Simulated assay, not measured.
Amino acid sequence: MTDRQIFLDTETTGLYPDSGDRLVEFAGLEMSNRQLTGNSLHLYVHPERDMPEEAARVHGLTIAVLEEKNAPPFAEVGREIADFLRGAELIIHNAKFDVGFLNMEFTRMGLPTIEELGCTVTDTLAMARDMFPGQKASLDALCNRFSVDRSKRVLHGALIDCELLGEVYLAMTRQQFDLMGGAEEEVEKTGKPAAVAETKRSAHLKVIKADAEESAAHEAYLDALGDDCVWRKEEAEA
């Protein structure tokens, strides 16, 4: 399995790639070992058709705006996008939509589809519905749930949505997130850590030690926190 992951989002002229709608913006942010690598691709694309008013109200991209940005047609940037995505795990919110548009655009050019590029796809919408059944699973709702600041998201935009998705995905996949949150709630209620407040319950907990890969991911996360890492300070004082 590849350790190269890409947070991906697109904006389009509408909802239906098989009925004449086209892609107008692409963004991808690369991550490896739960750290953004700095490698990214962000492109505006001229759809070579009109822009419906309802679509422009969502993302703010009119044909005039795209022409001001000298946005090229997809035929001029499709290969660059395909090369950027090749072999990566794509992390997308509502993946069916974005993959459908990319595959349509690639097929128009005679380029390989997402599947043929050797990509795997992780849909955070499906993840959220599994984690929080019956609750809202939009990107905005998940930002609220995980306290991700979305104040800069005035309009939908592929790049800002990728950045927000990255933060949400890391929160969703941080294995100790719920356990730590539960412990904090226990402290507020009893004034004691959960382990002290209910020793009988803790006696029945099954302890599963981290494997080598999980330990390495944990150390990499602590490294990213730098000198302010409380965990490392406590270890040094122990």
Rank of each mutant, 00 (worst) to 15 (best):
P73A: 03
T107M: 09
T62F: 01
E198F: 13
E48L: 08
D149P: 12
P72L: 08
T37C: 02
L8K: 08
F146Y: 15
A56F: 00
A171I: 04
M51L: 03
G110R: 04
Q176N: 11
G100H: 09
G182K: 13
E234M: 15
E237M: 13
A197S: 14
E53R: 11
P193A: 08
S202K: 13
L29A: 03
L90A: 08
G20H: 09
V207T: 14
L36V: 01
K206D: 09
R4L: 04
S40T: 12
G157I: 12
F97H: 11
F132Y: 15
D83W: 04
A82Y: 03
N103M: 08
H42W: 08
F177M: 09
A197K: 04
K136D: 12
C143I: 04
K96T: 13
E53I: 04
F84Q: 01
T124Y: 00
A183F: 11
F7E: 00
S151K: 15
I114F: 06
R34I: 02
G100P: 07
L225K: 14
E163S: 08
E68P: 00
G182H: 06
E163Y: 12
T37L: 01
Q176P: 01
V77C: 12
G78I: 05
D140H: 13
K136A: 15
C229W: 04
A75Y: 01
D130S: 13
K192Q: 13
T13I: 10
A236P: 05
A217M: 13
H218M: 15
P17D: 13
E76T: 02
L225A: 07
V24T: 11
Y221F: 11
Y169N: 01
E214R: 15
V99S: 07
L29E: 01
F106V: 05
E25W: 07
E116M: 05
V99M: 03
Q135A: 10
K192Y: 11
M127Q: 09
K209Y: 14
V58C: 04
K209C: 11
I92D: 00
V168Q: 00
A137F: 04
I63M: 05
V45W: 06
T199L: 14
E198T: 13
K209A: 12
L222Y: 06
M109K: 00
L41V: 04
T2R: 03
A95F: 07
A217P: 01
V65C: 02
S40I: 05
T120L: 09
D227R: 11
A224D: 09
L85I: 00
Y169A: 00
R86H: 11
T122H: 07
G78V: 06
S151E: 12
P72I: 02
